[in-house]
Nucleic acid binder design. Structure first.
Lengths: 248, 248
DNA sequence: CGACGGCTTGACTTCCGTCAAAGACCGTGG
DNA sequence: CCACGGTCTTTGACGGAAGTCAAGCCGTCG
């Protein structure tokens, strides 16, 4: 698997799997060529920390494949996930030197990186990049606010259902399948990571997953493979209105 | 008070109190002149709803004076505040027609509005606007993520302390006073609004405010006027590291 | 004055966290 | 091959933080 991902080292954007969704989505051939000059790939193994909070960041970049998490940690060890980074998501903040969060590879991960200074210069001269980045940042802001409602007001059961709904819906959108009724996917997160995302303990996550299973809202094959027989039922459990604020 | 705010109706940007901090901050004289052509002021009284979630939005704009809140509501009435809008903050999302949240004026409020279509066109042609909006959106995203940690992982007492610290720090920054030790400010929110911000009930907010007062972390004159005798003590109570991630 | 909204305080309940033990699964090495 | 350790997960018993329900206080405004 890691071998596969390393093969991205050939630096040709035109065949890139995230070409049409990443920060470079709006760039034309010329602009892409200039980006190619300052880009490079980096691979990380599952579990590796990509960036430590507080560290100086000399690059920004996009997730090409794999999954990473964005987390904050308090001195006493309490941690809260503040973002889930999927292919095409952008990492780093132009105009800031220090990293504000830990970025950890949850699966094997490949990133397309740009040295920060040249990237910032390109942003000045290439509106297409800044425009796309604004769009992506606004989407992330919406997602963060959506999540604030989950964290602040939902019960443990609703939180689990919300997370499953988000993952299920996203999987469906990647495969361009409608979320009619039956939805099947693999959880990309451990119970502990789910807990960190949801502001719960891993025990509570485990209990509520079991409860949803017992009540027939979901079916489990193994620990990670999930089947949702009736997606609208899951949305009800999540406390979302029926079609759940059609996200991206 | 409302009379005062209405006097902003004179449309001259150069004397605008948020000139250097709003979405127009980077604009030069020319650009400002073009913005003036499409701008208009609107006033709202305390308690009025500025925008209803789901409504079509035909304008975007900046808060000139006063305070507004951004909230989400579930069908059963549970509500979560997802943003606090202060002078210079931007409302609305270019490129989207429907409002995602309720916007409510907490105090009397004046907004500088732009019709959406012309504003979007100006964004295309005026990099300074898009650049500034990106910067502001990234700041908001950071604030939202900061708040996710508060909502997901902090205790009720820590939540209250965190809110007081944020308000106190911001007040200090507006007045360009250092947050050395003694900090004094008025709470711009009711107990219920604080609860909606913090993911608590208003009773719990009331209890924890009383507890912080009893323990000497804060002093109260009336219900809303707060004195913090030792700001670093407040930060400790908030669970922040000593200088609390120097925000804006 | 009385009525109202905002706030406080008390008594009780409950959801979820804590602590603890043990099961499932996997790869390693004897 | 199976024993072993490690990680991830489940489940139970218990306790505590915060929610719920209810009563009453304070300041303001008609």
């Amino acid at each position: 698997m890691l071998q596969d991902t390393l093969s991205f080292a050939t630096p040709d954007c035109s065949g890139c799997p995230i070409r049409h969704r990443a920060v470079c989505a709006r760039c034309d051939g010329d602009e892409l060529a200039r980006l190619e000059e300052i880009k490079y790939y980096r691979s990380f193994e599952a579990g590796q920390t990509v960036i430590w909070s507080g560290d100086r960041m000399d690059f920004v970049g996009s997730v090409v494949s794999g999954i990473a998490t964005l987390t904050q940690t308090m001195e006493d060890g309490r941690t809260q996930m503040v973002g889930l980074l999927l292919p095409s998501d952008f990492v780093g903040r132009p105009g800031r030197d220090g990293a504000a969060y830990d970025v950890v590879a949850t699966s094997d991960l490949v990133m397309c990186c740009f040295r920060k200074k040249p990237f910032e210069q390109m942003m000045e001269t290439t509106p297409h990049i800044a425009q796309r980045l604004l769009q992506m940042t606004l989407d992330e802001l919406d997602a963060a606010r959506e999540w604030m409602l989950v964290l602040g007001r939902k019960t443990a059961r609703e939180k689990i259902a919300s997370l499953l709904a988000i993952i299920g819906r996203r999987n469906a959108s990647i495969q361009s399948v409608s979320v009619a009724d039956r939805v099947v996917f693999d959880l990309p997160l451990t119970r502990e990571a789910m807990a960190d995302y949801l502001g719960l303990t891993l025990e509570t996550v485990s209990r509520q997953v079991s409860a949803l299973k017992k009540d027939g809202v979901i079916e489990l094959q193994g620990k990670r493979h999930v089947t949702v027989p009736d997606f609208s039922r899951l949305l009800e459990e999540a406390g979302d209105d029926q079609d759940g604020g059609l996200l991206v």
